[in-house]
Design a protein around this nucleic acid. Structure first.
Length: 215
DNA sequence: TAGGCCATCTGGTCCT
DNA sequence: AGGACCAGATGGCCTA
């Protein structure tokens, strides 16, 4: 199967998973049945399974034995399996396309330089995360400035570091979460002391920060 | 050529 | 039963 040449596959949105937001991820460890040892199965070493922890296990075994359904010929079963697999593959492909189009939409609202630069998936997510954080801080600064118009001189010193540090810390506090690797905004800013967007006084000037600084 | 990124397939699990 | 979600495996493309 040849991948899409352009790198951005044509998206056929069916809306089957159209939700305002993905449902909250249930981070609980999913149970792996003790049944078929699969090389790909690495999730949740379901220790409690022996004690009946895995709800799906018995159900699955029942289903696998055929349950109440009428016995079918090997050929029919194989055909049915293939057909189901094919449908599942189509759904999965479609799901991933939806995911990618959402990612593209996200890319669309993120400022990049150059304009046509395409962020990878992980870059897009990290950039969005940090960008939102930076915008939030900008709003906070604007808020504070609004209510402290009487003493404008103290703004930067007071607000340079929202968490209560020196203005110099402001830059290193660029992101609430310092992601691993060089994509960390904190790292990238520290590596480039003269980064645009941070004035000599440590004030952040919205709109003047290079997009790569958010990565 | 190695490594990164990506699309796709696949089987397992959970949910409706 | 079937769909959604997830993660591992695989192979192709691209770039340093």
């Amino acid at each position: 199967m040849a991948p899409h040449p352009s790198g951005s596959p044509t998206v056929q949105v069916t809306g089957e998973t159209e939700r305002p937001f993905p449902k909250a991820l249930d981070d609980e460890v999913t149970c792996a049945t003790s049944a078929p040892p699969s090389p790909t199965l690495k999730r949740g070493n379901c220790a409690e399974a022996e004690g009946g922890g895995c709800r799906g296990a018995s159900r699955k075994l029942r289903a696998r034995r055929g349950g109440r359904s009428r016995p079918k010929s090997e050929l029919a079963l194989s055909k049915q399996r293939r057909s189901r697999r094919k449908k599942a593959n189509d759904r999965e492909r479609n799901r991933m396309h939806n995911l990618n189009s959402a990612l593209d939409a996200l890319r669309g609202v993120l400022p990049t330089f150059p304009d046509d630069a395409k962020l990878t998936k992980i870059e897009t997510l990290r950039f969005a995360h940090n960008y939102i954080w930076a915008l939030t801080q900008t709003l906070r600064i604007a808020d504070h400035s609004f209510y402290a118009l009487e003493s404008p001189a103290s703004h930067c010193g007071d607000l340079g570091s929202p968490e209560g540090g020196s203005p110099g810390d402001w830059v290193s506090l660029y992101s609430p979460v310092s992601q691993a690797g060089s994509l960390s905004p904190a790292a990238s800013l520290e590596e480039r002391p003269g980064v645009q967007g941070a004035t000599s006084s440590g004030c952040l000037l919205p709109g003047t920060v290079g997009f790569s600084d958010f990565l």
